[in-house]
Design a protein around this nucleic acid. Structure first.
Lengths: 207, 207
DNA sequence: GTCTATATCCAGATAGAC
DNA sequence: GTCTATCTGGATATAGAC
């Protein structure tokens, strides 16, 4: 049940339910053992299946990772969509940034799969990347309202966001040392972005 | 040959040479397969040993990781020590930051083991952590010259540094999108740190 | 779709001879 | 220190019966 699909038959919805169960179990184990340490057999055991049965739902371990990736990004997307735009650049930026870091901290394994890409041979499929890109575009359009449109600006923003998240996760797990820097970081970023010379009048064509 | 040790006997230096060879091979494989995918047996094969022979040098896989961690941090430390202090906070900060990001980019696997800590069950030993702390203290003392002494300030700085490095590695490997933001990031950080109210006059005792 | 059985392969680690 | 042989345990994946 993702996009506009026809009403599922009973069989189809049973299948979807099974897939959800498997994905939930996979995420549980990923949180416990690390994303890279995930084992198909153990996922199967946890949902009460024998390992080969999983192959009715996922063609390979990579396919399972891909589904986990897509599910994670869908969660992320809906969380970011729920952020109310603020009255100023500073406010909007701060809220989106905070939501990003909180999302990361609440599930470091998910953060690792979605944003760090340190899983051995995993490369997201095009379909899954489309969801990731949607999330990125959401940020773009939210900031376009404040005339932030340069790639360089986005890159600076995402660097600060991931830096706060990664430091919090790897150097103070469970704590709040970097969460406490969120407001300052947003102030700092907003100041830097506003200091930036505005583009001249919009012209036709690129550049 | 790390600290002040006596002149090594011939036997000892042979042993050290063997250890260096093993570590070099381990790092090569880590770069190829990812740190988490490292295999003891393959390291052995690569240095022309049978797998059990490795155990004369490292008691376990964890011990090998630990030695790799220590070696990596020693490299990092010497790189940071080679940074000439600048004339201003902005300059010093910028140079250290650039060195950090370049170090990360030139070997993402090393960056992962040293700074991201996403290897399954690996926890550095105390001896190895001491090297890591030495590197951190180096930054602290370099910035103390500019009255940057608050934990919060360091946390903001390290967040920006790791953010640039992590984004460059995971979203533009081999490119320079985030490297190009280094100067701006340093400007931004220096401005934020200087905006910070200075502490009152130094007083005796803690706080 | 689920199972049993199996193929294939690999890992980390230990025992003990040389 | 290095080897052979082995233990133990796991993994992903496939074949084929039900």
């Amino acid at each position: 049940m993702v996009l506009g699909e026809a009403t599922p038959t009973w069989r189809e919805s049973r299948r979807e339910a099974a897939i959800d169960t498997i994905l939930a179990a996979a995420w549980e184990l990923a949180r416990r053992d690390g994303v890279a340490g995930l084992s198909l057999s153990e996922v199967a055991r946890r949902v009460g299946m024998k390992p080969p049965s999983l192959y009715s739902y996922f063609d390979s371990k990579a396919a399972l990772y891909d589904a986990m990736f897509a599910k994670g990004y869908r969660e992320y997307l809906s969380r970011q969509q729920a952020v109310e735009p603020g009255a100023t650049l500073r406010e909007t930026l701060g809220r989106k940034q905070r939501r990003f870091v909180e999302f990361a901290v609440e599930d470091p394994a998910r953060h690792q799969l979605l944003f760090q890409r340190t899983v051995p041979g995993f490369v997201p499929s095009e379909a899954s990347m489309a969801i990731a890109n949607e999330a990125y575009d959401l940020l773009r359009s939210a900031l376009a309202a404040y005339d932030i449109t340069d790639q360089a600006d986005f890159d600076l923003i995402t660097a600060v966001n991931t830096g706060l998240a990664d430091q919090q996760i790897s150097n103070d797990p469970g704590g709040d040392r970097w969460l406490r820097q969120l407001d300052r970081a947003a102030d700092m970023l907003a100041a830097a972005l506003e200091r930036r010379p505005k583009k001249p009048v919009a012209r036709k064509g690129k550049r």
